[in-house]
C-alpha cells in the first residue's frame, strides 16, 4: 500500500506539478483515485510542490470536499441548505442518521455508507435533494431514501 501510494502520488505529481496553482488539482486527483487523501500523501505532495507539509495540511483540512480517512463503499450526501430545509431536509437528515446508525461525517453501522452534509446541490426547485456516489436525487422523503439505500446496498 505504502509503495503503491508513493507510485501513484509521484505519477500525479509528474503530470500536474507544472500547472499554475497545482495544489488543488493534485489533491483532487489523489482523492479521485483512492477516495481520500491519506496522511502519508502529505509529505509527498509537499516535496513535489516544494512547499512545507504545514501548507499542504492547511489546504487539505480547509476544504470540506477532501477526506482524510477512507470513505464507505458509497457516499450519501444530504443537502442541508435553506431551500431543502423549507422542504423537510432536517427531518430527512435525522432519518438518514437513524437508518444508517451514524452521525454526519461518520461511517454507517455496517461500514457501507459515508454520511455527509452538503450545502446545495443546485436542485432547489425540487427540494430536498441528496446525492449518492455522484448521482443526484430530488424530491426526497424518508420512504424514498430507504428504497434508494436498499437499491444501493451491495
Amino acid at each position: 500500500m505504502a509503495h503503491d501510494l508513493e507510485g501513484m502520488v509521484s505519477h500525479i505529481l509528474e503530470e500536474m506539478h507544472a500547472l499554475q496553482g497545482a495544489m488543488l488539482p493534485i489533491l483532487h486527483a489523489i482523492q479521485d483515485s483512492i477516495g481520500y487523501v491519506p496522511e502519508e500523501a502529505v509529505p509527498l505532495v509537499a516535496k513535489g510542490l516544494n512547499v512545507s507539509r504545514a501548507e499542504v495540511h492547511g489546504v487539505l483540512t480547509f476544504y470540506r470536499h477532501f477526506r482524510r480517512t477512507p470513505p464507505g463503499k458509497h457516499v450519501l450526501q444530504i443537502c442541508c441548505a435553506e431551500s431543502c430545509q423549507a422542504m423537510g431536509a432536517n427531518r430527512l437528515a435525522e432519518h438518514a442518521k437513524k437508518a444508517l446508525g451514524c452521525d454526519f461525517h461518520e461511517l454507517s453501522r455496517d461500514g457501507l455508507f459515508s454520511l455527509e452534509p452538503v450545502y446545495c446541490l443546485g436542485q432547489c426547485a425540487t427540494s430536498p435533494a441528496v446525492m449518492i456516489d455522484g448521482e443526484v436525487h430530488a424530491r426526497m422523503n424518508p420512504e424514498k431514501l430507504d428504497r434508494l439505500l436498499e437499491g444501493t446496498e451491495s
Binding site: 495544489m23 488543488l24 480547509f62 470536499h65
Partner: peptide, 25 residues
C-alpha cells in the same frame, strides 16, 4: 476548468483566487 473543493467562502472573489493559487480560501 478548475474544480473547487466545497468551501462556500471561495465564492468570494479574493478567496477564490487564493484557492486557485493553491492555498486555503
Amino acid at each position: 476548468v478548475r474544480r473547487a473543493a466545497g468551501s462556500y467562502v471561495c465564492g468570494e472573489e479574493t478567496a477564490m483566487l487564493e484557492s486557485m493559487e493553491g492555498r486555503r480560501g
